[in-house]
Simulated scan of single mutants.
Amino acid sequence: MLDIREVLYENPVIMAIKDGKDLRECLKEEYSDNKVVFVLFGNIETIPTIVKKLKNKDKIVFVHENLIEGLSSSHFSPSFIKNYTDADGIITLKAQNTYEARKIGLSSVFRFFLLDSLSYGSVKDTIKNTSADLIEVLPGIMPQIIEEITGWSQIPLIAGGLIRNKVDAMAALSAGAIGVSSSNTKVWNI
């Protein structure tokens, strides 16, 4: 498995692509320094081609299993991604799938949505029950929360969601995130 931390140390901006337009954009030469891509769209027929295009540009590709049409987040999702694509890892909302991914040699990002104090309270217990390589916290514009989580979690954190500019990205990174994911192409160049 790859050490994503080293890659993000060189360039902490992760290109999150949500459609074909984003895919075409992130393949441009101006984004050659951006090595990590989160694929947030596609279906079971198109995802192998999407991943192949990204891998041909030497990208490290994580597929969000919950957002691929026709691919549920069952424990079979990681094996489908492993067997039918060249993806490096998955993004998942299920702790169990981080174990499945690790067993078959895929990296995993465990994604959290922090909506309120109740969801924040469950994060600590959930992180203990995962074998994810990275955790992603959404929205990523909560520096205090990011700092708290990175203070007690051993798993590196990515801030995602609502990262709109350099100020947002730098606040997340200064709070302890090792990377920021964004579908905003303006953020990709910072």
Rank of each mutant, 00 (worst) to 15 (best):
R164W: 02
I127R: 03
K52G: 08
M142W: 05
V7N: 00
L106R: 09
G161L: 03
L173V: 03
T185L: 04
G121P: 08
V7I: 15
L40R: 05
E10V: 03
S77I: 09
K166P: 00
S119G: 13
K94R: 15
K103W: 10
I155E: 06
K52T: 10
I178L: 13
N165C: 07
K53Q: 09
E65A: 14
E10P: 02
E65Y: 08
V13L: 12
T150V: 15
N165F: 02
I68N: 03
N34G: 09
L162V: 09
D168N: 15
P139V: 13
D116Y: 09
Q144K: 15
K94T: 02
I178G: 05
R102A: 14
S79P: 04
T150F: 11
E100K: 10
T185P: 07
P78T: 12
T92D: 08
D19Y: 11
H64Y: 06
Y84R: 08
A132G: 04
P143N: 12
I91Y: 00
G151W: 03
G179N: 12
D19N: 15
A132C: 06
S73A: 14
S183R: 07
L71I: 12
Q96L: 10
E69R: 05
G161H: 03
V61R: 11
S73N: 01
R111Q: 03
T185K: 14
G121S: 14
A172H: 07
V63G: 12
S122C: 00
N184T: 01
E147H: 15
E69P: 00
V37F: 05
D58C: 11
E147M: 02
S117M: 03
F62W: 04
E69F: 11
K55Q: 11
A177S: 14
N165E: 10
I60L: 13
G179H: 07
F112P: 06
L93S: 15
F80K: 00
T126H: 02
I50P: 11
I163C: 04
V36A: 01
V39T: 06
P12A: 14
G121K: 07
N11E: 14
F112S: 01
F62H: 02
P48I: 06
G160T: 08
V63D: 01
L115M: 14
D116L: 13
V180K: 08
S77D: 06
V37L: 09
V36E: 10
L2C: 03
P78S: 09
W188L: 06
I91H: 00
V39W: 09
G70H: 04
L54P: 10
F113K: 01
P48M: 02
P156Q: 06
I104V: 05
T185F: 01
N83C: 01
N184F: 08
S72E: 13
S131C: 07
S73P: 05
G89F: 08
D133W: 00
V51H: 03
V167E: 14
A169F: 06
V180E: 12
S131E: 12
Y31M: 02
I14K: 05
A159I: 08
D88P: 00
V51A: 05
K28C: 01
I158K: 02
V61I: 13
T130Q: 03
I68W: 05
G160H: 09
G20C: 07
